[in-house]
Simulated assay, not measured.
Amino acid sequence: MARMRTTKQHLKQLLQGARWRDHLEEIAAGGMSSVGPLFSFLLLGPRTMHRAAAILGATVARLARDEPEAARTVIRRFMWHMNEESGNIGWGIPDAFAECLAASPSLAETYHRILISYIMDLGHDDNFCDNDVLRRSCFWAVGRLAQARPDLCAAARPWLIRGLEDADSLCRGMAAWALGQLPPELMDAPALRRLAQSGNGDVCEIYEDDHIREARVDDLARAALARDKARDG
């Protein structure tokens, strides 16, 4: 038990250091012994949580290559934490789920529909995330996967568009950011334009390049529109 606490504290120090990426392969090589501590770090502050999610992604991608069933066990653990029956609120889980799928082509192919399902409100018998705060992470997660594997996220587009009118203001901003990670599509412009012109000054926290940046909801919509125009030429 004492050795486990020491290992966990060591990993935490590496994760919170400025050169944390230098240790990514070392931690990932720990396989399942690294997974438990990294899971616990998902409950820490935003930057540490995202770093833990990124290293979980590298760790699980390595497991998917060398120990496929172990990798699937981790993904099933994510799914259980996102299930209301688990009694948990899955803080950090969508973020880690997305990083794993971004890092592993085989896991992405198998599980991308599950990740997207957390923003799909079908009205019944669905995986839609009812917790507004956690749902913001679900939108971010879809955007993160879209950065790495846009082809697998095409089916998320109509649900991201619906997210622009989410009951939660910050979910609307995160949906706009996520749409901006997909290839341009002209049908997105009207909904994005409405949000861009809404005057919504609520502030989202976006994790990018190991930084947490703050951005207004309407600014995120304008940025998505600008990226579409730039990519359209």
Rank of each mutant, 00 (worst) to 15 (best):
A29Q: 12
A96Y: 09
D228G: 11
R231A: 15
G92Q: 08
P190W: 05
G57K: 03
A108I: 02
G123I: 09
G163V: 04
R51S: 02
C100A: 10
C204D: 07
E69K: 11
L186S: 15
R5Q: 13
D202M: 09
R144V: 02
M32A: 08
E84T: 11
R3I: 07
L225M: 15
L164C: 06
C171A: 13
H112G: 09
D121P: 00
L56S: 04
V142Y: 02
G45L: 03
A28V: 04
R19A: 15
P158C: 05
G90T: 10
Q181V: 03
H211G: 00
T73F: 07
G173F: 09
Q147G: 00
Q147K: 13
W140V: 04
E205C: 04
R213V: 12
K12L: 15
N131I: 10
A18M: 12
G123M: 11
L182N: 08
E85D: 13
A154R: 15
A155V: 15
N127H: 15
P37V: 07
R216G: 09
I93W: 11
D66K: 13
K8R: 14
A98F: 00
M4C: 01
S169V: 12
G199W: 04
A167L: 06
G163R: 03
F78T: 03
G201A: 11
D132M: 05
K8C: 04
R222W: 06
A18N: 13
R62M: 13
L56K: 03
K8S: 12
H81P: 00
A102D: 05
A178V: 10
L107T: 05
A2D: 13
A154G: 14
